[in-house]
Nucleic acid binder design. Structure first.
Lengths: 216, 216
DNA sequence: TAAGTAACGAACTAGCTAGTTAATAGTAGG
DNA sequence: CCTACTATTAACTAGCTAGTTCGTTACTTA
């Protein structure tokens, strides 16, 4: 009888990886939804198929669990970012592509952005402690730096801004659109994430960055 | 004896307005600092010269106090915004001026921005309940709308964006710079609010908006 | 100056919340 | 098949936290 006892259906299979992963997934949702102080360890436990004790068994405490969720969210985004190849494109095309990639990432990962907002409210005190932090800057900036250099050398791009400035400009637009959509909607009655306006904003972002970078 | 008894020095002068205002001021700091769930009513009380009972006396509860702080913060910003007169300026100059005004406001009112971030984490559930909400859109957008119209009519500005789009673009940049400065600093080792870089970013914002709006 | 009202304070409480204890059940190695 | 270890559970606890009770003191007004 090598097969696991599954005849009663209710037998609990042990699987450390699965349990750990499930806790992390639920914790990410809960922290992103309620913030660090607003999230409840009991609530996270209740939403898993395991118990609160397991959270402490695998993660030691609420703060470490939060940091694990934050690090995991950054890892996911970083993994996506590294799959970009713009060397074959003209600098202007490459910039638009990178901007649109950021635009798409942010739109499809709201939990990540919420965790970033929350972490900023906490003045990045947890992220600063993270051992994963070095290397988080990652490929995004290096890739951007390469494209900017090419554009400058060919005389197309202005030379008074660096990769971080441009990265900041792109992020601003994308982060605001999703992170501040609720107060914006409440005040101006416009849903920045309305699918009908998606293409408009995507094009607007690309135009904004390129019009700014381009020498006339 | 019309003068208040002040001979012992420790006599408590009664002043409803002052007490209320003090609670609101401390509450604003506390909520902006710790978030709604992270803020402690006891802590707010301890930091005032009055007691917790007075918080409930004047504001009924934690949530109403938070909303009062949020509304008050918006009122302050709105008051500043309405003191702008750009009709005498060329459209391009006016746009730059409005952008720089937003830039300056955001930099000098960090508590306001933190409250906005916090309120977005809560999906604007409190702001939506506010009776002060209508009229919050305020003059900022109307002024911007007038300038854009003038710019379009003279053929200087593109015509595929409206005032809310431009407002969003300006806000994005200013909000990101202050609201996301902590994670940005942690990851990229650049302080977006470093005074040495202030002029650079201020000019960059104006260029960004104008290069985007201008027909070439 | 008496009575009423607005402003205030100290101490209390019910319920919540992060973290713990102690005992149990599945699993892998010998 | 037995021993040691890993994974798991349920019940518990100490301390915190929003909100309350009840009584007191200053100010107002008739």
């Amino acid at each position: 009888m090598a097969a696991p006892t599954s005849d009663t259906g209710a037998i609990k299979q042990r699987d450390a990886d699965r349990t750990r992963a499930e806790i992390l997934r639920v914790a990410t949702e809960e922290f992103a939804d309620k913030g660090y102080a607003g999230a409840r360890v009991d609530e996270i436990a209740a939403r898993t198929s395991t118990t609160k004790r397991m959270i402490y068994y695998y993660f030691s405490g609420k703060e470490q669990l939060y940091l694990a969720a934050l690090e995991n969210a950054y890892s996911v985004i970083r993994g996506l970012e590294s799959q970009v190849d713009v060397d074959a494109l003209e600098p202007a095309e490459a910039i638009r592509k990178l901007a649109e990639l950021t635009f798409d990432h942010h739109e499809s990962h709201p939990d990540f952005l919420r965790l970033v907002s929350i972490e900023n409210i906490h003045r990045a005190e947890h992220l600063t402690k993270s051992e994963l932090l070095p290397g988080l800057a990652g490929p995004a900036v290096e890739v951007l730096d390469g494209v900017l250099r090419r554009g400058r050398e060919s005389g197309q791009f202005r030379d008074d801004v660096d990769a971080l400035d441009v990265h900041m400009m792109i992020s601003s637009f994308c982060v605001f659109r999703t992170a501040n959509r609720y107060t914006f909607q409440a005040i101006f009655q416009r849903d920045l994430l309305d699918p009908k306006r998606r293409d408009h904003y995507r094009r607007m972002l690309g135009d904004m960055v390129l019009d700014f970078l381009s020498r006339d």
